[in-house]
Write a protein that binds this DNA or RNA. Structure first.
Lengths: 328, 328
DNA sequence: TTGTAGGCGTTATCAT
DNA sequence: ATGATAACGCCTACAA
């Protein structure tokens, strides 16, 4: 009368129903260790019948594996966490983690002193997915951890990388600008310390050189405010500019706003394009030409990599496609 | 030689250092059960000295408390999860949960058959925060669970509510429209099934009635596309309209785009205002007048309520403030 | 007020 | 290939 009528079915129930011992059932369920085909079959069907789900807490306790995935965002200040891109990533991570019966945490990693080893030392943390990855951050990963870390951005020998082909996406956008007659093209870059933000810059430099066009680079910081400032600089330095490529949509939208304020018509006087294809890109006036960034897929793969058992290649690149709208 | 040099300090280490038994240390740390002032003092200082942090997995295992917070979003389809507001909420939840050493999960709850009891039956789930709460969802919460559920929206006797004063915020926006001379004001509503979305509608009706103005309501769905459609309906039905209030910024931005496409000047011909103060509201042209929605604070409080021990009031209301921009 | 003795559900080690 | 048994770290009757 004091005992709850229904309890969660545990391994022992499955074992009993299958007519084997807990040990055998455990080996079958966790997939580690030998078991006869018959035992395997019976345990699996019993588990299915009883709706058995392993208790993650017990698992964590016994093999110290942890029960959450941490999204570690490298940045100068904790402000990086307050960003639509990060929000999107967290939501995607939470969704994927849910299917593994674990949760996600969110942490800022100071760019100056990235200590991913500390995060990994936490027993409650099963794996870490790093955003805005830097070389220093990768160096702080102990070589012993294998398969518990994944990076969105650059990788290393021990840390697999999952990233969008932003070099290719940027090239597609820039080729589109060129194809539509633009010849005085400026670019707003991202933070200089962020390795993966250099790929679009390289694409820009390469294409400008190949076309025999001058390079017009202004630094930004992934924000709309930064884009506004950059647009001011561009107009002051190169008033003849006829196109601006922002390294991300936020920067491009800031450029758009600043150009309008300066009386330039978009796209007649100046074309504007971005990267990411965020929701706001479809709502601006004119609609922002950009390239896709499959953040959800990327994060989902990265989370799957740190949670799953399966081997993952050192580098996984996700394609980026041009999205033509009115701004360019 | 096979043992790792450093292990996580556990309760036993603390107990030993404090010169008491595990039980006493446990009682002191978990705060439940008697302990002499001296023991209390010694255990606490030992714990602080050794940097002791209770193992959440072990705690979960022994008292079946779970180690993650689930963000449960009620909606017609799983599409609700793909929404900037939800993304923002997840990030805020993850950030708060991190400080409790737990993670967050994200789940869609079908509006037709909300089964929060199932979520709560999951042993790995320590608490649930419900978004887009409906009466049916609240009814599905077993009365026995106390303090493990919180709602962003309407609450119930057993489920505390945390919400923005969207009635008050809407009133502030509408009064602003009235004060700036608008008299033919239409409103784009949210989904009819969502209780907390009725408060702004009520504010609208009340103010229109008080001012002796006709009611012009068109239904939307919180999306920009819905806002576009609603704007079309409004222009067709009431071409004389001189202001549109969107129940959220996404809808208002959709209205803005549709009005521009229809050749109406904003704000000269028609004023437009929204609610939420999302990032995109500051980037549109013209900037969108709106009212603040402190989502981060709200979610943080709700997560704290389901994770913390402390009692929370049945209803916590967060103020909303008008943000004037160029659109109204 | 304190300590002793299980037990939470799982996996790993060791016999068989 | 299989099964008993001992951990994992913590909490909580229960006895002292």
């Amino acid at each position: 009368m004091r005992r709850r009528p229904e309890r969660q079915t545990r391994l022992e129930d499955v074992a009993k129903a299958a007519g084997v011992s807990r040990s055998t059932a455990s080996r079958v369920i966790s997939g580690s260790g030998p078991a006869s085909p018959t035992a395997r079959e019976r345990v699996h069907s019993a588990a299915r019948l009883l709706g058995y789900r392993p208790d993650q807490a017990a698992r964590s306790l016994v093999n110290g594996s942890g029960f959450r995935v941490t999204l570690a965002v490298v940045g100068t200040t904790a402000q990086v966490l307050d960003d639509p891109y990060v929000h999107r990533a967290v939501a995607a991570a939470a969704l994927t983690a849910t299917s593994y019966d674990v949760g996600v945490s969110l942490q800022w990693v100071p760019r100056d002193a990235p200590r991913l080893d500390r995060l990994l030392a936490d027993r409650t943390v099963r794996g870490v997915v790093v955003l805005n990855t830097t070389e220093a951050a990768l160096r702080s990963v102990p070589p012993t951890v294998r398969g518990r870390v994944a990076s969105v951005g650059i990788g290393s020998r021990t840390v697999p990388s999952f990233d969008v082909d932003n070099g290719g996406g940027a090239a597609a956008v820039l080729r589109h600008l060129y194809a539509t007659g633009r010849r005085r093209i400026a670019m707003v870059t991202g933070p200089a310390w962020l390795p993966c933000a250099q790929r679009p810059v390289k694409a820009y430099r390469d294409l400008m050189r190949a076309a025999g066009l001058p390079v017009r680079l202004v630094s930004g910081d992934f924000t709309a405010a930064g884009g506004r400032r950059a647009a001011g600089t561009i107009l002051a330095r190169w008033p003849e500019v006829d196109a601006v490529f922002g390294i991300n949509d936020a920067a491009a939208l800031g450029v758009l706003a600043a150009l309008r304020a300066a009386g330039r018509q978009v796209p007649e006087d100046v074309a504007v394009a971005g990267f990411d294809d965020v929701e706001a890109a479809g709502l601006s006036d004119p609609g922002l030409t950009t390239a896709t960034n499959p953040v959800e897929q990327i994060i989902s793969s990265a989370v799957g990599a740190v949670l799953g058992e399966t081997w993952v290649p050192p580098t996984t690149v996700f394609p980026s496609a041009l999205v033509r709208r009115a701004s360019a």
